[in-house]
Amino acid sequence: MEVRTIKVFTTVDNINLHTQVVDMSMTYGQQFGPTYLDGADVTKIKPHNSHEGKTFYVLPNDDTLRVEAFEYYHTTDPSFLGRYMSALNHTKKWKYPQVNGLTSIKWADNNCYLATALLTLQQIELKFNPPALQDAYYRARAGEAANFCALILAYCNKTVGELGDVRETMSYLFQHANLDSCKRVLNVVCKTCGQQQTTLKGVEAVMYMGTLSYEQFKKGVQIPCTCGKQATKYLVQQESPFVMMSAPPAQYELKHGTFTCASEYTGNYQCGHYKHITSKETLYCIDGALLTKSSEYKGPITDVFYKENSYTTTIK
């Protein structure tokens, strides 16, 4: 009895394709271990004539594949690729409408935090270190965002349907971005203890939790000093293409032309909904596939993004 075979390709990165001759009487799992086709788990399936010449994702289970996976995804987590594939199996079914010149995501599976993050990423200057993220990001900007969303979920250790947080998501993504040249110098002034300067680099240099107003941050924000008295913390120097200011959701007025974009969060910790506000020729609110415009805006804002380049204080 002759062994019926077909020729397929296996890959971990969709760049390096490895030619395989597979036995049609055995499952993919018996031949390769966990195997995925377009995100779908085909591990328990036997090869079919229609699979001839198709590319299958496999887990990096030998040295060659491990090197290829690390170079593309910059992670050695053995569960990463499987999590990416199972997320992709959902995100490829989502709709990605162009809204006001940006790629958004039609609401499904509690994905409003991903839509808000995706919209924000198209408006701030950011370059990702893992080629996987950078490639998928370019495709997302062009309207094909399924891979990018699935990668975000995998890097953030999230599953489809789980509630997510924009600030946490951005923080994970910033860790995989090139923020080497970003720098922030802060000064804390206390009447009792004097003053202390701190220099922050990388992710810490672009994120701040405690106030939404970048102007206020430049002037000074009140913080408790270690001595128990009130101290003032203010920005001395900022070198970065953008800054992200966050605070627990509270009524906040966004003035046209003073910011790049913002995240609105309605609801409580267990259950809520994100919308995205962007400042173009007027203010726009993007909620999944829905767009509304207004000249002014007041609502429960939790993150505001500002364009920056270089700032030095005039406070002496």
Rank of each mutant, 00 (worst) to 15 (best):
3 V>F: 13
5 T>R: 12
5 T>P: 12
9 F>V: 10
11 T>H: 05
11 T>W: 00
11 T>Y: 02
11 T>D: 02
11 T>P: 01
12 V>F: 08
13 D>K: 04
15 I>Y: 02
16 N>R: 07
16 N>Y: 06
20 Q>W: 07
22 V>D: 00
22 V>K: 03
22 V>I: 14
23 D>L: 11
25 S>A: 14
26 M>S: 13
26 M>N: 15
27 T>Q: 12
28 Y>S: 00
29 G>I: 00
30 Q>M: 15
31 Q>I: 07
32 F>C: 11
33 G>A: 00
33 G>I: 03
35 T>K: 00
36 Y>E: 00
37 L>Q: 13
38 D>I: 09
38 D>Y: 11
38 D>W: 11
39 G>H: 09
45 I>L: 13
46 K>Q: 09
46 K>S: 14
46 K>V: 11
47 P>Q: 00
50 S>C: 08
50 S>M: 13
51 H>A: 05
53 G>R: 10
54 K>T: 12
57 Y>H: 15
58 V>M: 07
59 L>M: 13
64 T>F: 10
66 R>V: 07
69 A>H: 11
70 F>I: 09
70 F>S: 15
74 H>T: 02
74 H>W: 05
75 T>I: 14
80 F>A: 00
82 G>P: 12
82 G>M: 15
83 R>P: 01
84 Y>N: 01
84 Y>Q: 03
87 A>Q: 06
87 A>K: 01
87 A>T: 05
89 N>R: 08
89 N>Y: 15
91 T>V: 07
92 K>W: 04
94 W>L: 03
95 K>W: 09
98 Q>P: 00
100 N>I: 04
100 N>T: 11
102 L>T: 06
102 L>V: 00
103 T>I: 15
103 T>H: 05
105 I>F: 01
107 W>K: 13
107 W>A: 14
107 W>C: 15
108 A>H: 07
109 D>Q: 15
112 C>M: 06
114 L>V: 07
114 L>I: 08
115 A>H: 02
115 A>Y: 04
116 T>H: 07
118 L>D: 02
118 L>I: 09
118 L>T: 02
119 L>S: 02
120 T>K: 10
120 T>W: 06
123 Q>I: 04
124 I>Y: 02
125 E>L: 03
126 L>Q: 01
126 L>N: 00
127 K>C: 09
128 F>A: 00
130 P>T: 13
133 L>T: 01
134 Q>N: 13
134 Q>K: 11
136 A>V: 01
137 Y>I: 07
137 Y>L: 13
139 R>V: 04
141 R>N: 06
141 R>H: 06
142 A>D: 14
142 A>Q: 11
142 A>R: 13
143 G>A: 02
143 G>C: 00
144 E>N: 14
146 A>C: 06
146 A>V: 00
146 A>R: 02
148 F>C: 04
150 A>V: 00
151 L>V: 00
156 C>G: 06
156 C>P: 00
156 C>A: 11
158 K>V: 03
158 K>W: 02
160 V>D: 00
162 E>F: 03
162 E>R: 03
163 L>Q: 14
165 D>W: 09
166 V>K: 01
167 R>K: 06
171 S>F: 13
172 Y>K: 15
174 F>C: 03
174 F>T: 02
175 Q>E: 08
176 H>R: 12
178 N>G: 06
178 N>A: 13
179 L>N: 03
181 S>P: 06
182 C>L: 03
182 C>S: 08
185 V>S: 05
187 N>S: 12
187 N>E: 15
189 V>E: 10
189 V>I: 12
194 G>C: 04
198 T>S: 12
200 L>W: 05
200 L>H: 11
202 G>D: 06
204 E>N: 06
205 A>Y: 01
209 M>H: 15
209 M>G: 06
212 L>Q: 06
214 Y>S: 05
214 Y>I: 14
215 E>D: 15
215 E>Y: 04
216 Q>A: 10
216 Q>L: 08
219 K>I: 11
221 V>H: 05
221 V>I: 14
221 V>P: 02
222 Q>N: 15
223 I>M: 11
223 I>Q: 13
223 I>G: 10
224 P>G: 09
225 C>S: 03
229 K>E: 14
230 Q>A: 08
233 K>G: 11
234 Y>M: 09
234 Y>V: 10
236 V>L: 13
240 S>Y: 01
241 P>A: 09
241 P>C: 05
243 V>F: 05
244 M>N: 07
245 M>A: 05
245 M>T: 06
246 S>I: 01
248 P>N: 07
248 P>C: 14
249 P>I: 05
250 A>E: 10
251 Q>W: 12
253 E>R: 11
253 E>T: 11
254 L>W: 04
254 L>P: 05
255 K>N: 07
255 K>V: 10
258 T>S: 11
259 F>P: 04
260 T>V: 15
262 A>I: 03
262 A>T: 00
263 S>Y: 03
263 S>R: 02
265 Y>T: 06
266 T>Y: 15
269 Y>V: 14
270 Q>T: 15
271 C>K: 14
275 K>N: 00
276 H>Q: 07
276 H>T: 03
278 T>C: 15
280 K>P: 03
280 K>L: 13
280 K>D: 00
280 K>A: 10
282 T>R: 12
285 C>V: 14
286 I>G: 03
287 D>I: 00
288 G>N: 14
288 G>A: 05
288 G>I: 00
289 A>P: 09
289 A>M: 10
290 L>H: 15
291 L>C: 14
293 K>H: 08
294 S>I: 13
294 S>L: 13
295 S>N: 13
296 E>W: 12
297 Y>S: 05
297 Y>P: 04
301 I>S: 03
305 F>H: 04
308 E>I: 14
308 E>N: 08
310 S>K: 08
310 S>E: 11
310 S>L: 10
311 Y>N: 14
311 Y>P: 06
312 T>A: 13
313 T>G: 11
313 T>D: 08
315 I>S: 12
316 K>F: 14
316 K>H: 11
316 K>D: 15
